[in-house]
Design a protein around this nucleic acid. Structure first.
Lengths: 205, 205
DNA sequence: TTTCTTTGCTAACACATGTTAGTATATTAT
DNA sequence: ATAATATACTAACATGTGTTAGCAAAGAAA
C-alpha cells in the first residue's frame, strides 16, 4: 500500500529530434508568452517541463539565456528572409506581399517565439539588448526601403514608408487575438483577409 | 558647510489640478510602460515620484490598484466613445474612421496609459482580470458590428469583420514605434497616413 | 500660537526569486 | 556486470519585492 506513494525521479521528456535544452526553450516560450518574462518564474517553468527548478541549470545557464535564444532565433530567421527577398527580381509590392505572408506564417506557426521576441526583448541583458534593438531597427529600415522603391515607381501610394512598416508589422501582431479566439476563421482565410486589407491599403490604384 | 548636507523631508510635487494619488498614477503609467508592470518595482516608482517606497501607501492601497486604475480608466474612455459613435447618424465607414481617429488620438496624447492598459492587463487581479477581458471582447464585438454593417451595405470590402478589427487595433498600437522614433513625422501626418492605409484597405471601390 | 491631521521616513516583515552546491538516482559506456 | 557520466533532487543562499507599523516632520485648522 505504501509503495503507491513512492515515485521515481522525474525525467525531462525528449524525443529523437529534441534535446533537453530544446524542450526547455520551447516550454519557456509558451510560459513567457502567457505570463510575461518577469512574471514567469523558473519554478513555473520547471513545473511545465516536469522537473524541479534547480535541475534546469544542468541544461541552461540562466533565465536570461532562454530569452536570448528565443529573441535572436526569431531575429535571425527574419533577417534571412529579408536577405532573400531583397535580391529577388520581383516588383516592390510583390516583395511587400511576400514579407507579409512570411510574417503571418511565422505568427501562425511559431506564435509563442515570435510573440515573446516581439514583446519581451526589453528584458534582455546588455549588450544583447542594444544589439537586438539595432537589429529590429535595421530590419524596419530595410522594409521601409522596399516600400520607398514602390512609392518611387508608383506601385504604392505616396505615404511615409516608416509609418507603413509600423502599421504592417503591428497589424500582423494582431494575430495574437486570432490565437486567443475560440471561434475563428482558418489560417488561410486569415492570411487572405490580411493581404486584402493591408496590401489593398498600400496599392496605388 | 555641514548645513548643505541637511535636506528637508521630501514632498510629492502637486499642482492645483492634481492630487498626490494622481501624480503617483501618472508616474506609474510611465514606469510600467517603460519597464513592464512586473519589472517595475515600488522602489522605482517611489524614486520617480520623489519619496520613499513606503510613503506611497499613504495614497494608494497597492501596486495592483495602480494598474487597475490605469486599465479601467482607459477602458471606460473607449467604451464611452463607442457609445457615442454607435448612435451617430453617419455611414459605417465614417464611424470606422471616427473610431480610428479617436484611437490614434489616444495613442498620441495618452500614450503611457493606453499602452499599459493594452499590454499589462494580464497582471490584473481577479475578478477584475476577467471583467477587463470581457470589456475588451465586448468592445471588439461592437466594433466588428459596425464593420459588418458596412460590409452589408457595400461600403466595406467583403472581409471577416473580427479580423478587420484586430488589424485596425493592432496597427494603431504601432504608434508605439512612432513614439520611440527620434526622427518622425508630425502627429497629423501620422494620422493621415494611417487613415489612408487602413481606411483605404477597407473601402470597397 | 497650539493642536490636529496628513505625509514622509526608517526599520522590519514575510515571501518570492534566480541560482549554487552537494548528494542521490538513472543512464550510458566499457 | 561494473564504472563513468549525466541528470534530478534537496537544501540553502543572497537578493529582491510589496507591504506594515510606528515615529518624525510638515501642513492645515482652530
Amino acid at each position: 500500500m505504501l509503495v503507491y506513494y513512492l515515485r521515481s525521479m522525474a525525467r525531462i521528456k525528449i524525443d529523437k529530434n529534441s534535446s533537453r535544452k530544446e524542450v526547455i526553450v520551447t516550454k519557456a516560450a509558451a510560459l513567457f508568452r502567457e505570463k510575461g518574462f518577469k512574471a514567469a518564474s523558473m519554478r513555473d517553468l520547471a513545473e511545465a517541463v516536469g522537473v524541479e527548478a534547480a535541475s534546469l541549470y544542468n541544461h541552461i545557464k540562466s533565465k536570461t539565456e532562454l530569452l536570448h535564444e528565443l529573441c535572436f532565433g526569431v531575429a535571425n530567421r527574419f533577417m534571412h528572409k529579408m536577405d532573400e527577398v531583397e535580391t529577388e527580381k520581383i516588383s516592390a509590392i510583390e516583395k511587400v506581399e511576400e514579407l507579409i505572408r512570411f510574417h503571418i506564417d511565422e505568427m501562425v506557426h511559431h506564435y509563442e517565439e515570435v510573440y515573446v521576441s516581439d514583446r519581451e526583448w526589453k528584458h534582455l541583458a546588455d549588450p544583447y539588448l542594444s544589439n537586438f534593438q539595432n537589429q529590429r531597427r535595421m530590419y524596419r529600415k530595410r522594409f521601409a526601403a522596399i516600400i520607398e522603391a514602390g512609392i518611387k515607381n508608383k506601385e504604392i501610394k505616396n505615404i511615409d514608408a516608416p509609418t507603413a512598416v509600423l502599421i504592417l508589422l503591428h497589424a500582423i501582431g494582431g494575430i495574437e487575438s486570432w490565437h486567443r479566439s475560440t471561434q475563428k476563421i482558418s489560417a488561410e482565410a486569415l492570411t487572405q483577409n490580411m493581404i486584402t486589407i493591408l496590401v489593398g491599403g498600400l496599392k496605388n490604384k
